[in-house]
């Protein structure tokens, strides 16, 4: 079932001359891990704001088009109702955190959902452990490192167990191992629980391997969408390449290698073994 359906969505921020979204259409189903990429300023965060209703409900401006999420008509549905279905991790975690402690921060959304006390306690404990935040649970968010804040922001959204998970550069401040752990957790939720994840990420070297689909935006439009191995080339014109793709291209330009680019060091080394005629 399509959990997200955008048809010809336009949006212009009040006070801006240009449209930040110019006719975006996107359909995404349960179980997908959609990697959303594009140059800085192309409208990725703006698109995510449509999914949880911040646009058009909080941001003033011109909105046109159809936006349906989990069967709800976004412009007609209050954000707190959308919030039951769409979890949003914002690009700057610090601005998302406002309570006096990590534990309160994580419990807050659950309390708003009206869950029973015991269930709230269970889920808070679970995500604190999952994200390695137990020791920090009594700290205020402003007493945390940048990466710790980002983990808290992600944990508090994950605790809500939303069907649609919209994540705006969730790993920008995470060390690579934490980034991989969190992206694989998201990937597992898509496969096992049918969650739809829409993840904006610039760090393709970390995120690409988890994507089931890659969507590329440019200038407020979607310009490519599909199999990550194919689309990564399309995207590279706009956002550049991860190093394994650069290496692959160098070898391809020498006529040594062909086909789709590798997405991981493992895949690159396999191709190189082929090039040098290595036999075990």
């Amino acid at each position: 079932m399509a959990l997200v359906e955008l048809i010809d969505v336009h949006f212009r921020y009040a006070g801006s001359e240009e449209y930040a979204l110019r006719g975006v259409s996107l359909e995404a189903e349960e179980g997908e891990f959609v990697l959303l990429v594009g140059p800085s300023g192309c409208g990725k965060s703006t698109l995510l704001r449509v999914l949880n209703g911040l646009i058009p409900h909080f941001y003033e401006g011109d909105f046109r088009g159809v936006a349906r999420v989990a069967g709800l008509d976004v412009p007609k549905t209050p954000p707190h109702v959308l919030a039951r279905h769409v979890g949003m991790v914002f690009q700057d975690p610090e601005n998302q955190l406002f309570l006096s402690s990590v534990e309160r921060e994580i419990a807050f959304g659950l309390e708003n959902m009206g869950l029973p006390r015991s269930e709230i306690r269970r889920r808070v404990r679970e995500v604190l452990e999952l994200f390695g935040l137990e020791e920090l649970k009594d700290r205020a968010p402003y007493e945390l490192s940048g990466g710790q804040q980002q983990k808290v922001a992600i944990a508090s959204v994950m605790a809500l167990e939303p069907r649609v998970l919209a994540m705006d550069e969730p790993t920008a401040n995470l060390d690579p191992i934490s980034a991989l752990e969190i992206l694989s957790l998201v990937s597992r939720l898509t496969r096992e629980k049918g969650v739809l994840a829409i993840v904006v990420e610039h760090r393709l070297e970390l995120a690409l391997r988890f994507a089931t689909r890659m969507v590329v935006m440019d200038g407020g439009r979607i310009v490519a969408s599909g199999d990550p191995r194919r689309v990564v080339l399309e995207a590279s014109r706009l956002v550049g390449f991860p190093p394994v793709v650069v290496a692959h291209q160098l070898l391809r330009n020498r006529g040594l290698i062909g086909g789709a680019p590798p997405l991981t060091p493992e895949a690159l080394s396999e191709e190189i073994l082929g090039v040098i005629g290595w036999r075990r």
Binding site: P176, I177, V244, A247, L250, P265, L268, S269, L273, I276
Partner: peptide, 27 residues
């Protein structure tokens, strides 16, 4: 941290017995 992609690929090649003169950092 994780190894950068190019040293990671080079390390795998070495493991498989390919003789590299060094582990490069960049493509």
């Amino acid at each position: 941290l994780t190894l950068p992609q190019i040293p990671a690929a080079a390390a795998i090649l070495r493991e498989r017995g390919v003789k590299l003169s060094r582990i490069p950092l960049l493509p």
